[in-house]
Design a protein around this nucleic acid. Sequence first.
DNA 1: AGGTATTCACATGAAACTATTCTCTGAGTTAGG
DNA 2: TAACTCAGAGAATAGTTTCATGTGAATACCTGT
Length: 400
Amino acid sequence: MQTTLDDMFDAFVNKQSIFSNKTALQTGYTPDNLPHRREQINQLGQILAPALRLEVPSNVFIYGKTGTGKTAVTKYVGRKLRDHADRAGVDAGIVYLNSKLGGRADTEYRLFAELGKLFGASIPKTGLPTDQVYNMFINAIDSKKRVAIIVIDEIDYLVRKQGSDVLYNLTRMNSELKNAKISIIGITNNLKFSELLDPRVISSLGEEELVFPPYNALQLQNILEERTAEAFVSDVVETEVILKCAAYAAKEHGDARRALDLLRVSGEIAERNGEDLVVGDHVDIAESKMDVDRVIELIKKQPQQSQAVLYTIISLQNNNKPFGTGDIYDLYCDVCKKSNLKPLTHRRVSELIYELDMLGVINSKVVSRGRGGRTREVQLSISGIATDKIVRFLRAEFTY
DNA sequence: AGGTATTCACATGAAACTATTCTCTGAGTTAGG
DNA sequence: TAACTCAGAGAATAGTTTCATGTGAATACCTGT
């Protein structure tokens, strides 16, 4: 036992990895070269260029589905801008916030707190009135003459939670600043985002718009080839692998991130199996593994009540009969009683079901059964393998 | 038969409440000068 | 008198409850033929 483990570790250390630089495949990596995005880079560059003369650039909205390079392009242009600003001795910079990931800037308070921190103020994460945080941020940014470009990624999430007032305040801020000036870049993958916005905000924030079209399969191949050269030792990835990754990702709206993830996981699988060539089969394995893993991680992170609801849904699914909110609620109350959990109200459970739908774990639609009333009919929308794993996990939590 | 009114079983919306985490403030306490 | 401690007030936030209102179509009920 001991020796086999030693052998395994030794082998692992001695064996030459097929990766030469795995970070090049991880999310958040900004490559030096962004294929097929020349046009967007130029446009954004032109819009932001006035910052180099300490003039305020127009505000921008960037639209495009996930994995179309919005964030990468913005970061890339921002980096270049800062380089040039430094060389010219001008204080023009770009700061990047995400309103969703990690929940860092999804409320007005947190948005200003994060911004304040980025400009050197120390702001606690709770306890202060919002307008005080706002002032702290203003003071911090206004301490020097500068132009700050504020990027808010997944801005639709912020607006959906808080309404467009936050953005309105942000756009009016320039009139309160004496030294500094700000301009805003909003990034969203919701193409109908502007419908959520107040007309006032649209007119001041949507001065310029950039649309990022999805990549097609051929473009995805280029991207993958380039990253492969960076990330892998040469000649360990078969051409078929790249073709397959590109094809899988093109099938979903041309998502480059997904293509790269697929490539990375394929590589990891090959490496773990001790093989020194990545082949097409690895991609197939990666594809199904990633799906299952994603769902399971998602569910483990859900609050207990939501897990309980999902557990009852899975149980009901076994009866092979269509079922709605009422059925779920009844059984859910049973589950709660047996698991010593305080049942939530009908209203709340209804909401939890809707949230599970949004997460893509279940499929539901509101149907009217005439005199039978209206209800939300629910179906599980995850694969059998994933369901089995989930049930095993949930059985430990609940008894029924 | 054809038209309309009801009714069911929830959906959906808004507001209010709860518990938790955290800050700031100012009164009271302590210890050194 | 300056430094320290500590309780209390006030905030933000997630998660929930309470109350109110909305809704699509099968069915019951009518009306005139």
